[in-house]
Computed example of a mutant assay.
Amino acid sequence: MERRTLLRAAVLGGTSTAFGGTLWRGAAYAAPAQPGAGPYGALGAPDANGIRLPSGFTSRVVARSGQRVPGTSYTWHNAPDGGACYADGSGWIYVSNSEISPSGGASAVRFSATGTVTSAYRILSGTRTNCAGGKTPWNTWLSCEEVDRGYVYETDPWGVKAAVRRDAMGRFKHEAAAADPERGVVYMTEDVTDGCFYRFRPTTWGDLSSGTLEVLVAGTGTSGPVTWARVPDPSGATATRNQVSGAKRFNGGEGCHYADGTCWFTTKGDNRVWQYDAAAQTIELAYDDSLVTGGNAPLTGVDNVTGTASGDLFVAEDGGTMEICVITPDDVVAAFLRVDGQSSSEITGPAFSPDGSRLYFSSQRGTSGSSSGGITYEVTGPFRT
């Protein structure tokens, strides 16, 4: 899945900065995604759950904060946030973080092959403000604390093994993580206005107990070559983002997703979706709301991101118009769904079932605007795979 087979020669206007013997550009090599007709068609009227969907798609409520998950005795957590899906025999599991403090943590819902909820349970407790995270190739969930000097916890989606704190992955205001099995690294975002983009190189792939934390070093523009430098003190006694001269700053790192040689990540402070080409070691913009022609950006408040085998990216909004937007491989951005009547909330945790036919996500604060009002949904339909 390569969204761009080559970098376009045309470069948008902007300043340039010399870096590493090459020219750094003030804007992306390739024109960022622009609004257009999405692959799923127009949104319909709100359904019974207040969700506007394209024709052929349906929604259901899976769980509500403070209430028992239907079909189980487990009470769903408050402020559901980042999530992921895992194959479980002929069924699957959806895990979800809880972005509250001090309890935080994460929970899971197990589904049968037909999509029936069979159980729900806790997989992480005693942590703080667990925002996003990431799935590993060995089927664990990395739950990230979005607090100063926060930790990454490696958890078991099946709830059998105890969660393990992974100190070597650094202490900072963690947001999301994405594993790159081809290079044996885990990329991580940092949710502060002058945050950085990191990668962790474990000593042994599949074992996160030890390794090297590195930070991306680059010029001041939005596209060009990058390098990586070791963070001297991952413990964060001195903020990790301030330990390496030339570390590139990103305005509020959010979601992170890796697929086929590219790591996509979002920054909420400037409503951008970035793409890091891991083989070429370059970055560029996949989307920037300030560069949308006509000034009518369909995607604002960029947050969590996931993708499909077809190459489509699904980006959730923190605020905005409470939409999940799709960015296609041919650089078209369009709304896929919209949640009505929940303007004081945000969309979190988008993740697809293993077969790609169901999309899970949450409205973190639901209709009440409170962390106790979270709602977790499932959308089923003819997704492109």
Rank of each mutant, 00 (worst) to 15 (best):
R3P: 06
T5F: 15
R8V: 08
V11P: 02
V11G: 04
S16Q: 15
G20N: 14
G21F: 06
G21W: 03
R25V: 14
A30L: 14
G38T: 00
P39Q: 09
G41E: 03
G41K: 09
A42S: 12
A45N: 11
A45Y: 00
I51C: 03
S55C: 00
G56V: 03
G56Q: 07
S65K: 09
S65W: 05
R68Q: 15
P70E: 08
T72N: 07
A79P: 03
G82Q: 05
A84N: 11
Y86W: 07
G91Q: 12
V95H: 08
V95M: 13
A106D: 05
V109K: 04
T114C: 11
T116Y: 03
T116I: 13
S119Q: 06
S125A: 15
T127N: 00
T129M: 13
N130L: 10
C131L: 09
A132Q: 11
W138L: 05
N139A: 14
E145K: 08
E146L: 04
R149M: 05
V152N: 10
Y153W: 15
A163N: 01
A168N: 07
M169L: 14
M169F: 10
H174A: 11
H174E: 10
A176H: 01
A179C: 15
A179D: 14
D180C: 02
G184Q: 10
G184D: 07
V185H: 14
V186H: 07
V186N: 07
Y187E: 01
F197R: 13
F197W: 12
Y198W: 11
R199A: 03
R201E: 10
S209R: 14
G211S: 13
E214C: 05
V215M: 12
L216P: 01
V217S: 02
G221N: 03
G221E: 08
V226Y: 11
W228A: 13
W228P: 11
A229L: 09
A229I: 09
R230E: 13
T240D: 14
R241M: 06
R241H: 06
F250T: 03
G252Y: 12
G253T: 08
H257I: 09
H257P: 02
F265W: 11
K268Y: 07
G269D: 10
R272S: 04
V273Y: 05
W274V: 02
Y276I: 09
A278L: 14
A279P: 00
E284I: 11
L285Y: 02
L291Y: 11
G294I: 09
G295D: 06
A297Y: 04
T306N: 00
T306Q: 00
T308W: 03
T308S: 15
A309Y: 09
V315W: 00
G320T: 05
F336K: 07
S344C: 08
E346V: 00
I347N: 09
T348A: 04
F352M: 05
G356F: 02
R358G: 00
R358M: 06
L359Y: 07
L359M: 13
L359P: 04
Y360W: 01
F361P: 04
Q364V: 02
Q364Y: 07
G369H: 12
S370V: 00
G373T: 05
G373D: 04
E378D: 01
V379L: 00
T380P: 03
R384T: 14
